[in-house]
Amino acid sequence: MIKKMLQILLVFMLVIILVGVGIVYFLPGKTINEEKIFTSQEISNLQEISLNGNFDINITDSDSKDIKCSFSKTQKGYVANGYEIESKIENNVLYVTTNNQKESSVVLGGETLKVNIDIPKSYKNKLSIKSKLTPINISNSNSEDIECSTTDGKIEISLDKICGDISVNTHLGDIDLKLPKDEKFNLSASSRIGKVINNLESNVDSSTSDKHINLSALDGTITISGK
């Protein structure tokens, strides 16, 4: 008798949870937007842009002399101790991170963080990006040193010009790299479980002393194509 009551109670609790999740799924999300601008004076000696956190990342370039950072956080349901995005310049490095001093405790819901950064075309120093479970997208960076890594997420990079070395690593996710059709580069690309598709094989030149491109994935497809 007690066993049957426990089974009924368990089924009842499961139904409540499923109904709650369904309600959260269909509820509109609450979005908070924020923008921060680092002026040309603030970034005049900038040596590196470092992004490290649990957020979707989109990098673009423009003719502006300032760096514009747009932050967006969308929450559904109830989230205790949610992530916050912090940005600052310290020792000539622009840091954008998620504040996770308190681990995110999700009771019934979830949150999505997005970062859009518009970088001046004149910026040519290091661009370092680390994301956890989210995608990374870079469009037309002029950085001479690009480093990207994600635990589980797709990395897309599209360049009009190869300005220097590129290093990309993902554990679970695809890598999509679009490069100029007429530039030579030194390539190392491997995927342990996935495959490597190189549509620019004629551009690969191991004797090239610069423009080293290193791509690696544990489980994901690596695609190199022209634009």
Rank of each mutant, 00 (worst) to 15 (best):
F12I: 13
S44P: 01
S64R: 11
G153N: 05
T98Q: 10
T60F: 15
K130C: 01
I162S: 08
E90T: 05
E144D: 06
V21A: 09
V196I: 13
G53M: 09
D61S: 14
L14S: 12
Y83T: 07
T151D: 03
K178N: 11
A80C: 01
I197K: 07
K73D: 01
P180Q: 10
L94G: 03
D176N: 15
P135V: 05
F12E: 12
S72I: 00
K227Y: 05
V19H: 01
F185Q: 04
E201G: 09
I117Q: 04
L159I: 09
R192E: 15
N198K: 10
F38T: 02
E156I: 15
D66K: 03
K36R: 13
G164W: 01
T97K: 15
T151E: 06
G109F: 04
T98W: 04
I32G: 03
F185T: 08
V107M: 02
D165S: 07
Q75T: 11
L108P: 00
E156R: 15
G53A: 09
V96Y: 08
D152T: 15
T31N: 06
Q47W: 01
S70K: 11
F185E: 02
N140M: 06
K76L: 01
V204T: 10
E35H: 04
I32P: 03
I129S: 06
N99Y: 06
K181H: 08
F71E: 02
Y123L: 03
N140F: 04
G22Q: 08
N169G: 13
S72R: 08
T39A: 07
G82Y: 02
S209Y: 12
Y25R: 03
N54T: 09
M5P: 00
L133P: 03
E144I: 08
K114P: 04
I23E: 04
A217C: 14
